[in-house]
């Protein structure tokens, strides 16, 4: 299992290198955006996989509340951390792109605002986690907070879209040429593999440290049962 995960991770890194190489040096510059459009080859996959990871987090949270098994909590931490990391990266990449194409670092458009709020929501869950020491409580509370946060995302999205619609609709011309789809796809799979690897790895570490936290208690219980 461990080797499989590492293999997927290495494959992901390799694909990311290939996809980024194609995106940066092989694909033609976009008609209007020019070379700046190359940020999209890493930006769009980051967005997709970040959203996917937060969906994983939601699923793991429900699974934990349903089964009460620690392994779901282990995976939940992994998924939460990756979605926060990808969410942060998404914002930085987006700002760099926006600086060149729109001339501004930030605008309160739908996708930007929703990404920012999502990043804050999930970072908040991780913060809550860091404040709770008791393992059972930590697991349950992070699952509950993850569900609450995830449900908010579509509400925020529609709200911002509506809120903004009075001012301007940010149009981004999406004329995607076939030579641009290839690096986009490669990087999407690369990000997916890397995310799966990192979630599995983080889960394994969490389960190890959990094992280290608890043993004395377990021995006590066993002794009580024997006596």
């Amino acid at each position: 299992m461990r080797n499989v995960a590492t293999g997927i991770g290495l494959l992901g890194i390799l694909l990311l290198l290939v996809g980024s190489y194609v995106g940066l040096f092989v694909a033609p510059p976009e008609r209007h955006m020019g070379d700046v459009q190359r940020i999209m080859y890493v930006h769009v996959p980051t967005a997709w996989i970040g959203l996917l990871c937060s969906t994983f987090a939601m699923i793991f949270a429900v699974a934990y509340l349903w089964t009460g098994r620690n392994r779901w909590d282990d995976r939940l931490v992994g998924a939460l951390e990756i979605s926060v990391i990808l969410g942060g990266l998404l914002l930085v990449q987006g700002m760099l792109w926006g600086r060149v194409t729109w001339g501004i670092w930030w605008t309160w458009d739908v996708r930007l605002t929703t990404s920012l709020i999502m990043f804050l929501l999930f970072a908040g869950v991780l913060a809550l986690r860091s404040f709770v020491e008791e393992p059972l409580r930590r697991a349950t509370w992070s699952s509950v907070a993850t569900i609450i946060a995830y449900v908010d995302v579509p509400l925020v999205y529609f709200c911002v879209r509506w809120f903004r619609s009075l001012h301007q609709v940010q149009s981004s011309p999406e004329t995607v040429h076939s030579s641009m789809i290839i690096p986009l796809r490669i990087n999407a799979f690369a990000m997916l593999f890397i995310a799966i690897w990192l979630i599995a790895w983080r889960a394994r570490i969490e389960s190890k440290s959990r094992g280290a936290e608890r043993p004395p208690e377990r021995i006590e219980i066993q002794g009580a049962q024997n006596g």
């Binding site: 709020i117 913060a127 809550l128 908010d152 709200c159």
Partner: peptide
């Protein structure tokens, strides 16, 4: 109800509640 039972409640409650209540 959660944050009242942890240390550092003053930070965590607004951190969780404000982004959530943005709508």
């Amino acid at each position: 109800s959660m944050t009242s039972r942890v240390t550092g409640r003053d930070v965590v409650l607004p951190l969780l509640l404000f982004p959530l209540t943005l709508p």
